[in-house]
Design a protein around this nucleic acid. Structure first.
Lengths: 162, 162
DNA sequence: CGATATTCATCAGTGCACTGACTACTTCCG
DNA sequence: CGGAAGTAGTCAGTGCACTGATGAATATCG
């Protein structure tokens, strides 16, 4: 039984891609604020007052991870959380003034980093790359929560293609 | 200052891609053996007797992470490590019989999983996708260890394009 | 109204990934 | 030979990511 060439495995390449990105991020964007943390700041910039679950939905983090990330951002004074008066289960999250400032600074640097990260590809290839990344990620996301088969069709909830 | 659309950020998509892969792996391949662990088994199948540093190079893991992963695989009896008699700093790593069996079983399942993972793309797109992933990851890897400028050229060690 | 379902958040446990500090062994060179 | 430099591996600390269990508040249904 022979070994396999990992460079033909999308999962292996996905991990390497993320590591490569991590490296670039810490050198070009920030050593204190991580990429997921920036994602949370960005989500709250777009929609102030979100609760943790929804932030997780926007950024692609599960409840536990959101709790940790939010905890760190709170400790650094970049966001504040207050109980939702409407629904006592929720926290309402908002950027502080400092948080908004950090978001702005990092947004500029992140743009520069993205430029470098994609530099090995031509303009056309970059567009294709992003499109393919999105499609594969989205498709796998569907398999997670099989999107209620609203209406007709056979009632079989999850068509697992394997 | 407006918020940004994360779906245009390759780093964000890289993270989501890896999460998607993780999900598929645990459901379709194994809940016990992770993808990086499989990578190590595969490297040792290809080249028995490797030391940890080299395994890390093959699989894309740093020394610390290799140590952890190797520790887990050793505890499960899938690999064995013995001091290299030539060089007392190194351990020589080998698959056990059980390790080889696990590798074989997972190799089959991994192929099936890769198929599902890439299913949203056409054959042609899949090839392009893997190529782009490889090129971006490799390029960023270079920035890490700037590959000794062997010979001529201006002596400037690392051309950081930012 | 009151028991049951959900839903938001937390916590414990496991695993990958990186850095920086440290030990032990080898190699290089004077 | 013997000290300096380099290399393999470990360890401590931080951070992301997932599962499964639990607690608190809300929503729903009989």
């Amino acid at each position: 039984m022979a070994a396999v060439d990992l460079s033909t495995h999308p999962g292996h390449l996905a991990r390497r891609l993320q590591q490569a990105h991590y490296l670039l991020w810490t050198t070009m964007v920030s050593e204190e604020i991580t990429s997921p943390q920036y994602g949370v700041l960005n989500a709250l910039m777009a929609e102030p007052g979100l609760d943790q679950r929804t932030v997780g939905e926007r950024v692609g983090l599960d409840r536990s991870t959101v709790a940790e990330v939010v905890g760190r951002l709170g400790r650094r004074g970049l966001i504040e959380k207050v109980r939702d008066t409407e629904d006592g289960r929720r926290f309402s999250l908002r950027l502080t003034g400092e948080g908004a400032g950090v978001h702005r600074k990092l947004t500029v640097r992140t743009a520069r980093m993205n430029h470098v990260f994609l530099a090995p590809l031509s303009e056309a290839e970059q567009a294709v790359f992003l499109d393919l990344l999105r499609r594969v990620s989205d498709a796998a996301e569907q398999l997670r929560s099989p999107v209620g088969v609203t209406g007709a069709g056979d009632g079989d909830a999850a068509h697992r293609p394997w």
